[in-house]
Design a protein around this nucleic acid. Structure first.
Lengths: 147, 147
DNA sequence: CGACACAAGTTGCGTAAACAACCATAACCA
DNA sequence: TGGTTATGGTTGTTTACGCAACTTGTGTCG
């Protein structure tokens, strides 16, 4: 491969190294902070899934956030320390923890989603609905390919 | 915002939480490992920029990889320990370090780029050139918006 | 029933991240 | 020229990640 190919394919390599994603997550982090929510974007991703559905197992959260089990264990540890979620041992399968939001965690939903939507608007500004929809298809395929 | 909106907009929130990027970077990591290259995907992103152009400052590497200065400092530390790069103090501006590849680092280019291209092929399999080009436009805009 | 595979979660270790504070050198400009 | 500002890099702290190894509890099947 020639050097000029390296450069012309820069987009692909930016994708490989997470450049786009770093940009988006950093902005989300900043927006959350400015809104007075002291959670990280990673913690947000757990909270988001619980806002959609409570009582998920850590395993299920790992799948939905595409993180591994140890990462989820530690994210839940930190969220529990912040009094945003609690672990409830599953009576039917004592291996599992079911994760529930606390009152504070539930109350955070409104502002948390607002900042998420802000971030998305900032990221996608100037793009048409068609462009966005097509990228959706593409990224969905990427996830399917790599799963 | 209603709960069903949460779900229908799932794509956006996956983007926010870096789900796509995690998938790609993890695959790159795996491909590198299977090819016998013991570097992380983050280290790869530094090496890639040096394969394109040697003698960059850490500041310039930070901009090109969209990472902050401390991250680059530590990535270079680790790459130096692996004997893949060296810091050379700039005679003209003694604040700067110019980063050069070692022989080993240069030799790694071929296999490193091969695995990167493998990863991209795996990620984009089944997508048309048009789809890919459009996503390129979209992601480029995202970066522009958030820069 | 009991051995064995499997699944959920945790812990250990090395690496990487953001942010803030800091040092050294260079550039600016009054 | 001398003080202020800006820039390149490092260090400290907390958080997060990936992988491997481990514990505990469930399911399976001879």
């Amino acid at each position: 491969m020639l050097d000029q190919d390296l450069v012309s394919q820069e987009y692909f390599y930016n994708f490989l190294t997470g450049k786009y994603s770093i940009a988006v997550m950093r902005r989300l982090q900043r927006n959350l902070k400015e809104a007075g929510l002291s959670i990280t974007s990673e913690q947000w991703s757990i909270m988001y899934n619980l806002w959609v559905e409570e009582g998920l197992t850590q395993q299920e959260l790992a799948i939905r956030t595409f993180r591994d089990k140890p990462s989820v264990t530690r994210l839940i540890n930190n969220l529990e320390r912040l009094n945003l979620v609690i672990r409830v041992n599953d009576k039917n399968d004592r291996r599992s923890n079911l994760i529930y939001l606390t009152k504070i965690g539930r109350k955070m939903k409104e502002e948390g989603m607002k900042q998420a939507n802000n971030t998305i608007e900032q990221a996608l500004g100037g793009l048409t609905d068609d462009q966005i929809a097509l990228s959706h298809t593409t990224l969905h395929r990427v996830l399917f390919n790599l799963k």
